[in-house]
C-alpha cells in the first residue's frame, strides 16, 4: 500500500478531540474512521499493510534497544518516503493512528501501558514542542528519523549497529537528533558513532558524564573548524583527541 496522509482538518479534528476519543486510543479506531479519513496517500511510496505486526514489542528490551530495532524496521518499511515528505505532520499522524496504537502504549505509556491525553497529544501528533514534535515525540517520526540520520552517514558501515549506538541512550540520541547543528554533517555523525563504537569495543562505558562534555566540546570546536569539509578519518582522529582531553578532565 502507499503511505497514507490525512487532511489538515482531520488532523486538527483528531487533536481537538483526543479526550472524546480516548477509548479508541486503547481499543482501536473502527473501520468507519479509516474509511472516512484515509482517502489520500503519497504517490510513489510503498509500505507493508502489516507494519503493526512487524514491530517489536519485546518488554525485556531496554527502551533504547527497542527504539533501535524498530527504527530499523520503520525506516526500511516506509519505501520512497522523501525527507521533504517526512516533515509533514499529516503523514505521521496518519501512520501513528493506524499502525502504532499498541506500540505507543507499550513504549510511551509508562508501567501501566496507559495513554493519557497528554501522552496521546505528544506521541500521535507532531504539534507538541515545535520541531521536537517530529524529532522527539511522535512515536513513528522519531523512529524513522533515527534510521534516516544513520542511513545518510553509514557509508558501508553496519547500519543496525550504528542505529543501536545512536539510540541506546535517550539523552545521547537527543543531543544529536534534536539539536542537529554539526551532527547533520554525515561525516561528523559517522565519526561520532564510530568513536563510541570503538570505545565500547575497548570496554569503556560511555556514560553521560563522558559523552555530554565530549559532544559539547565537538560542537564548540566546530565554530573554529569547517567540519563539513573534513574527511571521516580526520574527524575520527580529532574526536578521539577531544575524548582523551575530556577523560583527563573528569
Amino acid at each position: 500500500m502507499e503511505i497514507p496522509i490525512l487532511s489538515q482538518s482531520t488532523v486538527f479534528n483528531l487533536y481537538e478531540n483526543v479526550e472524546n476519543n480516548i477509548n479508541q486510543y486503547s481499543d482501536g479506531f473502527d473501520e468507519t474512521f479509516f474509511n472516512d479519513n484515509y482517502n489520500h496517500s503519497l504517490k510513489n511510496t510503498d509500505m507493508p499493510t502489516n507494519l503493526e505486526e512487524m514491530l517489536i514489542y519485546d518488554e525485556n528490551l531496554k527502551e533504547g534497544n527497542l527504539d533501535a530495532k524498530n527504527s530499523f524496521i520503520v525506516y526500511n518499511a516506509l519505501k520512497g518516503l522523501t525527507p521533504y515528505q517526512a516533515r509533514d505532520g499529516r503523514v505521521w499522524t496518519a501512520l501513528s493512528h493506524k499502525f502504532f496504537l499498541k506500540y505507543t502504549a507499550q513504549r510511551h505509556g509508562g508501567k501501566n501501558n496507559k495513554l493519557t491525553k497528554e501522552k496521546i497529544e505528544q506521541h500521535f501528533f507532531t504539534f507538541v514542542d515545535g520541531k521536537r514534535g517530529f524529532d522527539r515525540h511522535n512515536v513513528c517520526a522519531r523512529l524513522w528519523l533515527n534510521g534516516h540520520a544513520v542511513n545518510k552517514c553509514s557509508n558501508g558501515e553496519n547500519f543496525e549497529e550504528l542505529l543501536n549506538i545512536l539510540c541506546e541512550k535517550a539523552d545521547f540520541r537527543a543531543n544529536i537528533i534534536e539539536r542537529p547543528g554539526i551532527f547533520q554533517i554525515p561525516n561528523v555523525l559517522l565519526a561520532v558513532l564510530l568513536t563510541v563504537k570503538s570505545e565500547k569495543h575497548k570496554g569503556v562505558e560511555f556514560k553521560r558524564e563522558l559523552y555530554r562534555p565530549w559532544l559539547k566540546y565537538i560542537d564548540r570546536a566546530g565554530g573554529q573548524k569547517i567540519y563539513a569539509m573534513m574527511e571521516k578519518d580526520e574527524l575520527i582522529e580529532l574526536y578521539n583527541d577531544y575524548l582523551t582531553t575530556i577523560k583527563a578532565q573528569i
Binding site: 525527507p83 516533515r87 520541531k131 517530529f134 547543528g181 547533520q184 554533517i185 554525515p186 569547517i226 569539509m229
Partner: peptide, 15 residues
C-alpha cells in the same frame, strides 16, 4: 572555494 548547503529539518548537508 567551496559552498556548503545544509538543512536542519532533513539532516541534510552537501558541499
Amino acid at each position: 572555494i567551496s559552498v556548503i548547503v545544509q538543512c536542519r529539518d532533513t539532516f541534510f548537508s552537501q558541499k
